[in-house]
C-alpha cells in the first residue's frame, strides 16, 4: 500500500520532470511528454475516494498554477482518475471489489501496464490538446496522438525505473 509520503514524492518528481525536462524533450512541437498523468494513474486504489479525489484535484491545481492555463490540467486529470476504475474493471472483469481495492499498478506487467496506461493517457491527451488549442483540427488530433505515444514511452521508462516494486512479482492481477 502506497503511503502518503510515497505519493508526495512521486508528485514532486513528476512536477520536476515536467518543469525541467519536458520542454527540452518535446519533439518540434508535435510530441510533448506529459508523464505526470502517472500520478492520477498510480493514486492508491486502497484510499478512500474522498482522499483520492482530493489528491487528484490538488495535484491538478498545482499543475495548473505552475503550467497555466488554470483548470485545464485538473479537468483532464480528473478524467483519468474518474475512468481508471472503470477501465480496470473492463480489463479485469474477474476482480472482486476487495481485490480491486487492493489493486496496485506497481504490480503490473509491461503488457498490462500498456493496456492500463496507454488508453487513459490517450484519453487525457484527446481532451487536453483540443481544449488547449481550442479547436478540433486534424493537426490537433495528430498532435494528441503523437504526444500520447511519446508520453507513454516516458511513462513506461519511469514505471520500469522507479515505480515498479522490485520485490513484487511481475504478474498480472488475474
Amino acid at each position: 500500500m502506497a503511503s502518503v509520503w510515497e505519493v508526495l514524492l512521486y508528485s514532486v518528481l513528476l512536477l520536476a520532470f515536467q518543469g525541467a525536462l519536458a520542454p527540452a524533450l518535446q519533439v518540434s512541437g508535435w510530441a510533448w511528454p506529459m508523464p505526470y498523468v502517472l500520478f492520477w494513474l498510480f493514486l492508491p486504489f486502497s484510499w478512500r475516494w474522498e482522499w483520492e479525489i482530493g489528491a487528484a484535484v490538488l495535484f491538478g491545481g498545482v499543475l495548473d498554477i505552475l503550467f497555466p492555463p488554470i483548470g485545464l490540467q485538473t479537468f483532464c486529470g480528473l478524467w483519468v482518475w474518474g475512468l481508471r476504475r472503470f477501465w480496470l474493471r473492463l480489463l479485469h472483469p474477474s476482480l472482486v471489489s476487495d481485490e480491486a481495492r487492493m489493486f496496485a499498478p506497481q504490480r503490473l506487467s509491461t503488457l498490462d501496464f500498456f493496456l492500463y496506461a496507454m488508453p487513459l493517457t490517450l484519453w487525457h491527451h484527446l481532451w487536453y490538446f483540443p481544449l488547449a488549442e481550442w479547436r478540433l483540427h486534424f493537426s490537433t488530433l495528430g498532435r494528441a496522438l503523437l504526444s500520447s505515444t511519446y508520453t507513454f514511452v516516458w511513462e513506461w521508462i519511469i514505471f520500469e525505473l522507479l515505480l515498479r516494486k522490485p520485490h513484487v512479482a511481475r504478474r498480472s492481477p488475474r
Binding site: I53, V57, G60, P69, I70, G71, L72, T74, F75, L78, W79, G82, L131
Partner: peptide, 10 residues
C-alpha cells in the same frame, strides 16, 4: 469538480 475546473478554464 469537472464542471468547476472547466468553468475556471473557460
Amino acid at each position: 469538480l469537472q464542471g468547476i475546473v472547466l468553468w475556471m478554464y473557460i
